[in-house]
């Protein structure tokens, strides 16, 4: 088992941040971590990284306990922070060399490993650049390069899409997918649920310090939760009767909306064609995770 957290609890003063959290991330699995601000996402990530200690419970990274065998466990996990900060006067090369030494990579193999990490992160061309001159996107790439030093099989990504341009997001997603294909276990926290839905295997929804649910994205698709928008020239009662079975209908002029449609929505288009409706627009959007997230965080108290 790659990442395993058992009965984690954490408080800051009298404020309870996490309450009896248990989960695991399997090899080759990407688990999303979603939650409102203050739900405890970053606290979980920091505990898994070995920066914070849980009050109760244990964390195992490939079987090594991060509390009692930290040096060993830390070698097996990489962490990319939301806002990576390095020593501003250092260079990219100096920074990654520094962390390579901290990760126990000997000098003989460090040069090749560092070059490889920089190549993969796409920043080998800025080795001599000062950290203070790097954009957020480049700093995140450097952070990814550092996290891969020593080739750990487990990764933590904390809100890494924040403040990144589309190209940067594309790069990060490709890199994360690459790690996943290599069999790495990945825990990714993000507010961007649509991004998470597109490539996470499972999503842990955290609410008020507890796990509201852990749901697989394929299960969400099976639940058939779609938002449907239909615009036709001649909406009539026959059409309304047909659509009524998919969910609550909201009619506005020629436009009909069905939120959280269920059932075999694939029959809608054939019905419209067969019955001669003049279709101006038919869209089915999959804001599944977002809806599911809203349901879970609204219902759980």
């Amino acid at each position: 088992m790659a990442i395993e957290a058992v009965n984690l609890s954490k408080s800051f003063g009298k404020r309870s941040i996490l309450k009896d959290i248990s989960f695991s991330v399997q090899p080759g699995e990407l688990m999303g971590l979603a939650g409102l601000n203050g739900a405890g996402k970053t606290t979980i990530i920091r505990m898994l990284a070995g920066v914070l200690q849980p009050e109760h419970g244990s964390i195992l990274i490939d079987g090594s306990n991060i509390a009692t065998d930290k040096a060993n466990a830390s070698k097996k996990i990489g962490w990319v922070q939301e806002n990576p900060v390095f020593f501003p006067e250092s260079t990219v090369e100096g920074t990654i060399t520094y962390f390579a030494r901290l990760r126990g990579i000997d000098r003989a193999s460090a040069t090749a490993e560092i070059q490889g990490a920089l190549d993969v992160a796409g920043i080998s061309g800025i080795k001599k650049a000062k950290i203070r001159n790097l954009s957020m996107g480049l700093r995140k790439r450097l952070s990814i390069a550092i996290s891969t030093l020593g080739h750990p099989k487990n990764y933590l990504f904390d809100e890494i899409f924040n403040g990144i341009d589309p190209d940067g997001i594309k790069f990060l997603k490709e890199r994360i997918n690459g790690l996943k294909k290599e069999g790495c276990s990945i825990l990714l926290s993000s507010h961007v649920l649509s991004e998470m839905q597109s490539f996470a295997d499972r999503v842990m929804i955290l609410h008020q310090g507890s796990i509201a649910d852990i749901v697989s994205t394929s299960d969400l698709a099976m639940k058939g939760l779609y938002n449907i928008k239909i615009t036709v020239e001649n909406p009539d009662n026959k059409l309304m009767d047909f659509l009524d079975k998919f969910g609550e209908i909201d009619v506005s002029g020629k436009t009909i909306r069905i939120k959280k449609a269920t059932g075999d929505v694939g029959t809608i288009n054939p019905f419209l064609v067969k019955n001669g409706y003049s279709v101006m627009e038919l869209t089915m959007t999959e804001n599944l995770l977002e809806d599911y997230f809203n349901d879970k965080t609204r219902n759980v108290k």
Partner: peptide
Amino acid sequence: KSGILDLELAQPLT
């Protein structure tokens, strides 16, 4: 505060 200590602590160090 900046997180550098955290990042260092996340390395194989106690």
